[in-house]
């Protein structure tokens, strides 16, 4: 029993290693994808901060939105992971994993954390740029505890795993590349705009506030903002619990539906 568990953990790590090795042969991908959040920060962030339309309390708007931009980078990497999975299935790569002696749960978890590998690479780039910008270039004041900044990495892992889980769930339900792509796009905007990434939740109309409360990204952004900006981690246990809860439910659902994808 214990040895089976050890073996499954090893399987998850192997699937993650596969992704890390893929990424190593493809640096360009990270560079290209990092541009988007930074452009977002520079353009959207600066415009909004000059108009001062969004009430962000004691902190500048750019400071407020920095964790949101990091969350966006992570979300966009992971939310399309289901397409890669459909691609892997069509190309025959997935068959290899499916006939290996690994449980469906470790397979799905391995794929979720594979998205995390890409998300971490992305986050490191984006975070570095934000930190550089915060030294007198833009009006960004980060919480000045390097340990807190380092702790954003596990949060990035968790957010991307949940987003990938959602994406994989769609992949198991919709099965074709085009449809999964369409749903990824359809889902990204509401996930992003109804989280607290760009403005405080209280700023939204009541029905969007309600959506924000079930949006896992809200909890991820809250954690990131606590670590990067305010240093206030009083909401962290709840945020953490919600994200882990989402991950567990998604992984179980995906493993149950995984067979569908191969039919």
């Amino acid at each position: 029993m214990l040895s089976r568990l050890k073996r499954e953990i090893y399987n998850i790590l192997t699937i993650v290693e596969l992704e890390a090795r893929r990424l190593r042969h493809d640096y360009a991908d990270i560079a290209v994808r990092s541009a988007q959040p930074i452009v977002w920060l520079l353009v959207f962030g600066t415009i909004m901060s000059q108009r001062a339309v969004i009430p962000t309390g004691d902190v500048s708007y750019l400071t407020f939105v920095a964790p949101g931009v990091l969350a966006q980078a992570v979300l966009f990497v992971a939310i399309f992971f289901g397409i890669m999975l459909v691609w892997d299935r069509d190309s025959g790569n997935l068959a290899k994993l499916l006939v290996a002696p690994a449980s469906r749960i470790s397979l799905v978890l391995g794929k979720c954390f594979s998205a995390s590998v890409r998300a971490i690479a992305q986050a490191v780039v984006v975070l570095t740029i934000i930190i550089i910008l915060s030294f007198g270039i833009l009006d960004i004041q980060l919480f000045s505890n390097p340990i807190y900044i380092l702790l954003t990495i596990p949060v990035v892992i968790l957010i991307s795993a949940v987003a990938a889980g959602i994406s994989i769930l769609f992949a198991t339900i919709f099965r074709t590349r085009e449809r999964v792509m369409g749903f990824g796009q359809l889902l990204t905007l509401p996930l992003f705009f109804t989280s607290s990434a760009l403005y405080p939740i209280t700023w939204m109309p009541w029905y969007l506030q309600w959506f924000a409360k079930i949006n896992p990204l809200t909890y991820g952004v809250d954690l990131l903002r606590g670590l990067m900006v305010t240093g206030d981690l009083s909401g962290a246990p709840l945020d953490f619990a919600v994200l882990v809860g989402y991950l567990i439910v998604l992984v179980l659902a995906c493993s149950a539906l995984f067979r569908r994808m191969m039919e």
Partner: peptide, 22 residues
């Protein structure tokens, strides 16, 4: 269909398979 990972080297493909089988 081709099932080796086109983005990895031959050695890496084998290594991942070996690890999946313990």
């Amino acid at each position: 269909d081709v099932s080796s990972d086109a983005a990895l080297t031959g050695y890496e493909n084998l290594l991942i398979s070996a690890k999946l089988y313990g």
